[in-house]
């Protein structure tokens, strides 16, 4: 098992990169500008790519270098570029009607992290891993999940929702790099491509929404009820 016998340096590097990703998702929570979301997401993806490479180096998983490069290319460059193109087409550049103020959503996000920490501590305790980086990886994974759902719930611009969804995926990806670095390469590759298709589909749908509904805010999507 990789995480049971890590050198202190490796352990702190993993922690650093995981924490950076978590902080960047807080940047997304605390801002109202779509551009900021996008930069934070790209930065998060780079941190995850770096994490993959680090895990590959210390854990002797050469295939993770490939994953790191592809993560950088797909999640770090291509996806942000595609989303940037969608943003450019739209006339909105920030969340106009805020359901929850960024400051209060930061507080809620912090509460989520505490909850995630409690759950992770219990889960890692099942394997007597309380003192390893596993707790942190689980915490970041779960809290990025929760923050992603919070973004989906309180933001209603189409782009913010897409980015919220990508944060959900990033969280799982980050956690899986640390917890299960030996996961078969095929699955990771297919999931990367899958994300690309998801974003392409969203791009098309945002265009449709704009043409046929005339808005990209989910607050206006209230025709279908009951």
């Amino acid at each position: 098992m990789l995480i049971q016998n890590l050198s202190p340096l490796a352990s702190s590097l993993f922690s650093l990169l995981a924490i950076v990703s978590l902080l960047l998702s807080f940047v997304m929570l605390g801002s109202r500008w779509l551009k900021n979301y996008l930069y934070a997401f790209a930065g998060e993806s780079w941190a995850i790519a770096a994490l993959s490479a680090t895990v590959g180096y210390y854990g002797n998983y050469p295939e993770l270098y490939l994953v790191a490069i592809l993560t950088l290319l797909f999640r770090g460059l291509l996806l942000p570029y595609l989303i940037w193109r969608i943003i450019r087409r739209l006339e909105v550049d920030r969340e106009i009607h805020v359901v929850m103020q960024p400051s209060s959503s930061l507080v809620v996000g912090a509460l989520f992290v505490m909850f995630a920490l409690t759950v992770s501590f219990r889960a890692a305790g099942q394997f007597h891993l309380e003192l390893t980086v596993a707790v942190l990886a689980l915490t970041v994974m779960l809290s990025m999940k929760l923050i992603g759902f919070l973004l989906l719930a309180v933001r209603h611009e189409a782009i913010s929702q897409v980015l919220g969804l990508l944060v959900l995926e990033n969280g799982v990806f980050l956690g899986s790099q640390v917890l299960v670095p030996g996961m078969p390469l095929l699955i990771e590759l297919v999931i990367l491509f899958d994300l690309l298709i998801v974003v392409a589909c969203f791009g098309v749908l945002v265009g449709y929404l704009l043409t046929h509904v005339g808005t990209t805010s989910s607050l206006e999507l209230k025709r279908l009820v009951g």
């Binding site: 994974m141 992603g148 969804l165 799982v172 449709y208 509904v213 999507l221 025709r223």
Partner: peptide, 24 residues
């Protein structure tokens, strides 16, 4: 039409978010 766009958007959003839990 507007209704089917709305349905499609809700569909892909809710289901993708849900299914990411299954990935976790």
């Amino acid at each position: 039409v507007a209704e089917s766009m709305e349905a499609a958007w809700k569909y892909i959003m809710v289901v993708s978010a849900g299914i990411s839990l299954a990935l976790l």
